[in-house]
Structures are given as C-alpha cells and as structure tokens.
Design a binder for these strands. Structure first.
Length: 487
RNA sequence: GGGCCAUUAGCUCAGUUGGCAGAGCACCUGACUUUUAAUCAGGGUGUCCCAGGUUCGAAUCCUGGAUGGCUCACCA
C-alpha cells in the first residue's frame, strides 16, 4: 500500500476512499442534476424560500453539532450554507456526511430556508459524493499567500482566493468587450499563423521551433503585424487579430514571454485615427466592464475620459530632461547629450536611438497618462511612415498608462522601396550583433509591391490594459499560468 | 546576468545569545440537533529548501547550489 510516504492527512484520505468503496459508495461519481447555483439562491431567496433546489460544489467549511451539521459549499458563483440533520437523511447517510472532508465535491438537494442567524441555507434531504479530494486545501482564513504556489497551482489560488477569480472574470469581459467593440465597428476578426518563417513586426528575439516533416526551423510570432498588413493588401480594409504572441526576453512584473495582443488595421486611415480608436476603445471597455471611466491603480487615479492628451516625443523629453533634440541635428551631438546625462555610449549610436533611450530612461515610467506620445525617430520605427514635416521622424505613437506602454501604432509604411531600405538597415544592425533587429522579409515586400492602401495600424497589450483595469501590480496576476522555471 | 530578501507541519506564520521543533487553522479520537473563524476534552503529524563546513552541539553561523519575490541590467 501507500502508507509510509504519505503525510498523515494524505494517509487518512486514501484510507477514507478504501472505506467508502467498502461501503459501496463511489468516490468519483456521475454528474449531479443541478438546478441552482449559490448566488442565484441568495438573490432569489424570496421566491425560493421553502422550495427544493439541487446544487453542487466543493465543501469549504464544515461544522458538526452531533446529529446535525452545517457546511458551506462553493460553486462557480460563490458559496452557500448547507444544513443537514440525521433525522432528515437517515443515520447511514448522516455518518457518510460527517466523514466528508473539506475539499470534497458533493451534490445536494433540499429546501431553501433562513437560519435563526438569518443566513440563507439549504436544508439537505439528500446528497451524493461527486469527487473525493485527496489533498487538504490551503487554510480557510488566510488563504494561499505563497506566490510561487499561487502561480504554479493556480487552481488552488482560484479555490481559496475569491478575488483572483474576479480578476480573471474581468479579463474575460475585457477581451469580450474589445471583440464586441471592433466587430460592431465592422472590423473583421482573422487568424494568421503563429509559426513564422521570418519573425517580424516587432523588435524582439523570437522562440525557435522545428517542423519535422519539412525539416524546417520556424519562429513563434513576435507580432501579428506583417500578416495583417498582407490582408490589407488583399483588400480586407478593416481587420484585427486578438491572440498570443511570444518574445524570448526577460521576465518582469511587466513582461511575460507569452502574452496577448490585439492588432488592428484600417485602410484609408492614419495614426490620428488610431489615436481616436485607442481612446474610444479603452474608454468603452472601462465603462462597460467597470462601469466607470476612472479607476484606481495602486493608490492613484487613472481617468480615461476623452480626449486623452497628445504630446510630441521631443516635447516630453524636453519636459523631463531639459534636453531639446530639435536643437541637436546629428548623431555625434546626440551622443554628447547622452554622455552629459550619464548614459553609457558605445560610439556608434544613431540620433534616433539616443532619443528613444532618453525617452525610455528618463520619461516613460513617469508618464501616468493615459497619454499619447507621438512622432518617433525613423531609426527605431522601421515599419512606420516618415513624417512629411521631417523624414527623420515617423507617424508613430505609443500610449502610456501608469508608466507602462500599453499601445503602439503608426501610419503604416506602404512604400515598398522605403520599406526595403528600412529592412536593409535593420539587417545591417542584425549583422552587427543586434539580435532584436528585423530580418529581411522578401515575402512581405512582394506584398507591398502590389500596392497597399494608406493604412493606420494599432497594437494594444491586452495584459497590461487588464493590469490597469484590475489594479494588478504584476503581469503574472492577470495571466492564469505565468511562465515559471520547472521546479 | 548583478544586488537585496524569502524558503520551518497540508496552509498561514513564530522560533530569543548556537542548547530537546512551536502556534493557529487543517487533520485524528470522543461529546454536542440552527452553527458560522461553532464550542468542549484529548492527540503534533516535520528531509527546518538542498549539499558541504565551523562547533561538544546548527532551523540559527560560514561556503556553494535550487526555487521564488522585489530591483537594476536586458527587453519597445
């Protein structure tokens, strides 16, 4: 038998299963015909009082009083109290009930009533064990706090920490709400490949996998951008894709190797239209899901009321650092400015790269927002159209909330000749050792060469938006199973 | 990858100057027919994260390692 290697609690529960089987009780039974759930019984008590209901759930608390007992069971809606008396179920069934453990799943039928302490309760006339639990649940009062266990055994977190369930319910509603908004605005939801021959559309290191039959290395996508643009070339004027993307990078409170994005493309639009779309989409989602345009994030208010401010990137940098890059026209001047601010310099950085570094180091995490920061250097925006007022910058914006980048959008670069030059520049950087630089994508260039209409494109980091909307400090709090090193 | 911190019973946590391993919940035995952190009587169930070292003696001190958290770096 098992005995020795089990702790006492595991031992007793395994022994209970043997005893149950001896008594002819199935420890893992058939489905129970459920007529009600816990919260609906609470909500509709007036109509249900004295009526018979059938419910099923996990035993969370148990209080025996000799020949009568109380227990709470938990189902998908919450908890409800059960009351069971020996004289209403019989001695044999009552003994069985007394031997049940916290964590066991049961189905029960009985009349709804209110105890003398006014708790809505089901007075059980019959019940059946549906699933025997072999391991003790975390403690009822403090719940499960160990974050490692919470992430590795999320099911336990969900069972004992009710607020966790609410975060993921909100997550589901946010995603549903985004989908509804876009669908109602006549965007077509599409699915493009997750496995790519060329990993493009973002500056990031990809995961590599292998297809055996083709004997071919493939990349997990780092963005959905380049395939969605091919669809715009193909005449799909308004498309979006909501899905998982993968980046082989560090893990932090704002980064998980796999995360969810929505990318949206609209022909005959530009990045100004994408700004409007972003703010309207997020405000609409907040209003629908939370019922408010104002949310508390980590003790500070975020207000999604329209319109959100638009600020030039250079203007933001000047505000935070006093450095005005419009007065610094060349690479060497930019490097001097970087040195003056204490940044480390290799000596071959371009002006645009230094501008972005200034922004990321000195500004980004101080932008409470929501705010649009617009017009990024061409060197760090290889897929965005150049500004007409200055070809060193592009029609690109990023959206910030609580110091986090939550969206990135451009007036898309549709000129295949310029796009080829940008890719070539990226390939040079790749050769020089920048693993995040773009690869050449001839197939995408071919598509552009057929002609792509002027298009606005937008990508939103769903997980980060959900962090803000659920007041979660870590991205792991909004991803059910965050990436963990195996134990 | 660097720095700081954490790891003790199923869970939440104490553990003093280096001197027999502790509490609450959970669990086991018994009592109790409207309780609700039920109550009452009794019971401690352990690879103190792992491996070395110092010491008469290590949960405690030292070295190395593992996992996690925060943070910096990296990373749009």
């Amino acid at each position: 038998m098992f005995v020795d290697q089990y702790s006492d609690q595991l031992f007793y529960r395994h022994k209970k299963i043997e005893d149950l089987v001896k008594q002819g009780v199935e420890p893992y039974g058939e489905k129970y015909e459920v007529t009600h759930h816990s919260q609906s019984i609470h909500a509709k008590f007036t109509g249900l009082e004295g009526k018979t209901v059938s419910i099923a759930g996990r035993i969370m608390t148990k209080r025996g009083h000799g020949k009568a007992s109380f227990a709470h069971i938990q189902d998908s809606e919450g908890r409800i109290q059960l009351y069971i008396r020996q004289d209403s179920v019989g001695e044999e069934k009552y003994d069985l009930f007394q031997n049940l453990d916290i964590g066991d799943i049961i189905g029960a039928t009985g009349e709804v009533f209110k105890t003398r302490t006014a708790e809505i309760t089901v007075n059980i006339s019959s019940f059946r064990l549906l699933s025997k639990s072999l391991r003790p649940l975390p403690e009822k009062w403090h719940g499960l706090k160990d974050v490692e266990l919470r992430y590795r055994q999320r099911y336990l977190d969900l069972i004992v920490n009710p607020e966790v369930r609410n975060v993921f319910i909100t997550r589901s509603k946010v995603i549903q709400s985004i989908r509804d908004f876009l669908t109602k605005a006549d965007f077509l939801e599409v699915e493009t490949p997750v496995m790519h021959n060329v990993a493009g559309g973002a500056t990031a290191r990809p995961f590599i996998t292998h297809h055996n039959a083709l004997d071919l290395d493939l990349y997990l996508r780092i963005a959905t951008e380049l395939h969605l643009k091919r669809l715009v070339v193909g005449g799909m004027e308004k498309v979006f894709e909501l899905g998982r993307i993968f980046r082989n990078e560090g893990i932090s409170t704002n980064h998980n190797p796999e995360f969810t994005s929505v990318e949206i493309y609209q022909a005959n639009a530009d990045y100004e239209d994408m700004m409007k779309l972003t703010e309207e989409l997020v405000a609409s989602v907040a209003q629908k899901v939370l019922g408010s345009l104002k949310v508390d994030y980590q003790g500070r208010e975020l207000d999604f009321s329209l319109p959100w401010p638009r600020k030039d990137l250079l203007q933001v940098i000047q505000e935070f650092t006093g450095v005005d890059f419009s007065d610094i026209p060349d690479d060497s001047g930019a490097r001097k400015a970087a040195l003056a601010q204490g940044l480390e310099i290799e000596g071959n950085e371009k002006r645009g790269e230094i501008i972005l570094t200034f922004f990321e180091k000195f500004c980004e995490d101080r932008l409470w927002g929501p705010v649009f920061v617009k017009d990024y250097p061409v060197e760090v925006s290889p897929l965005a159209q150049r500004c007409r007022y200055n070809p060193q910058f592009t029609y690109r914006f990023e959206t910030f909330m609580a110091g986090k980048e939550v969206a990135n959008a451009f007036t898309e670069l549709i000129d295949p000749l310029d796009q080829r030059e940008r890719f070539e520049q990226q390939v040079k950087e790749r050769v020089a050792g920048n693993e995040e630089a773009h690869m050449m994508d001839e197939d995408f260039l071919t598509a552009l060469e057929y002609g792509m209409p002027p298009t606005g494109g937008l990508g939103i980091g769903i997980d980060r938006i959900i962090m803000v909307l659920t007041n979660s400090p870590s991205i792991r709090d909004v991803i059910l199973f965050p990436t963990m090193r195996p134990k």
